[in-house]
Design a protein around this nucleic acid. Structure first.
Lengths: 234, 234
DNA sequence: TGCAAAATAGCGAACGTTCGCTCTTTATTC
DNA sequence: GAATAAAGAGCGAACGTTCGCTATTTTGCA
């Protein structure tokens, strides 16, 4: 890779600048929840957490979180019922951990990180904030899919967390748009409405990935498209 | 109302031109499924079907279809367990009937009806097709919400039906876009990508209505916005 | 029109199954 | 051999579904 993010716009350079590879994610998750996880030896803990959450994403995407029984999860992971309960204290814990971890791990970081990286080049900041949103949605696809689909079925506190996560994204991105519009002459369009539309396009990516892969649209294509889309709206 | 659809663009004139009022909907649904519904007397059947499906939409939106038990449904509707089974033969029937009815009732009608109403005025056709999509999404909000959220948890055949319903919408709207682009000089943008983006915006309306009502955006505002959005993309 | 008889609609307890979860026992690791 | 992790049988509750019954409405005959 000759240049680096944010000058280089590829997902590879993005992933290198903000290391959120799926591999290290469950290590982070383990240390984040270490106090409430019974298994203390690091090696099996991280390995099994990865297995458990990947299986949760898979089964939930097939039949929903409610429709997935812990026996399903047990046979999918080859971990016994008792084994599972060394990692969670109840089924809802799986949902809690996903929502809480995503909220803490991603949160507003995208905006501050991109702002720092792009300095006072406002056009670049807008473009790369959009790309960062699309790339993050791609890397966290199973996580975001789960949160979107299951939010309404969760406990009130988790539902609230998931909703606030989305609202914060719209608000933060709306602020980037406003900043961009202030430097321009035109632009009477509502920043929040534009932000909602862009978010809907990002959601479409992680909710209906099959649709885009069938039509041979890559993540980089789609990020470019989202940038062009937003530009045309402003 | 001084003028009529499609010259008058309000949702009221649309609803008058295409009578899909919620009231008469369950009468239609009853006759559509009459052969598989045990209750033969029209009066209680239509009344109870309306009660049952409205409650299904309510409870499913709160805790998901899987999370809603038939005991929940029984106490919400004040219809006993045995009573419910005079209208369905199994729980999955509720989902089947929703998906099947929406597919049959709405299907491609929007496009043919709008095409007839707008004649060979291609610009008007594009605009009013978009408005028809938004207005239909609003009128059928609980139905579409249910289909979107529960599709992945349904039986394979129902899941397929729900997916095809969406794909058909994108394809049909893509054809309207192509026709519009052919009459213009510019326009190298992919019609299917534009159609997907518009569909994502329509989905946002029926999936997150709370978000728009909180910001005091009416359905007419939003339809206008979607028209402007699509125009800017072409 | 009035009344018994038939047909239909609604009810709710009970069935077998599956659920989330617990707890004692066995296996693994250092 | 002490400590930790995994195992899986077992628990009560709740699930979708069934079924024998009651209540209501319609029908057939005077």
């Amino acid at each position: 890779m000759d240049t680096l993010w944010p000058e280089n716009s590829s997902i590879e350079s993005f992933a290198e600048a903000f290391p959120i590879q799926a591999d290290s994610l469950f290590r982070e998750l383990y240390f984040y929840f270490r106090s409430q996880i019974k298994v203390q030896r690091e090696e099996p803990a991280i390995r099994n957490l990865a297995i458990i959450f990947k299986a949760t994403f898979k089964l939930s995407s097939q039949k929903g979180f409610h429709g997935m029984s812990l026996r399903d999860l047990s046979s999918e992971t080859n971990i016994s019922m008792g084994g599972l309960y060394n990692y969670i204290s109840c089924k809802e814990d799986l949902a809690s951990m996903i929502v809480e971890f995503v909220g803490a791990r991603i949160g507003g970081q995208i905006y501050t990180d991109t702002a720092i990286a792009t300095g006072n080049n406002i056009e670049l900041k807008l473009d790369q904030t959009i790309r960062a949103l699309v790339y993050t949605a791609d890397i966290f696809q199973p996580w975001f899919f789960f949160m979107f689909m299951e939010a309404k079925n969760m406990s009130p506190s988790n539902r609230l967390r998931a909703k606030e996560f989305e609202l914060r994204a719209i608000k933060n991105f709306g602020a980037v748009i406003t900043e961009y519009q202030e430097g321009k002459v035109a632009g009477d369009t509502d920043p929040l409405l534009t932000a909602s539309t862009l978010m809907a396009a990002v959601e479409a990516w992680y909710l209906k990935q099959w649709h885009y892969s069938e039509n041979k649209i890559t993540i980089t294509d789609y990020a470019d498209y989202c940038v062009a889309l937003t530009r045309k709206l402003l």
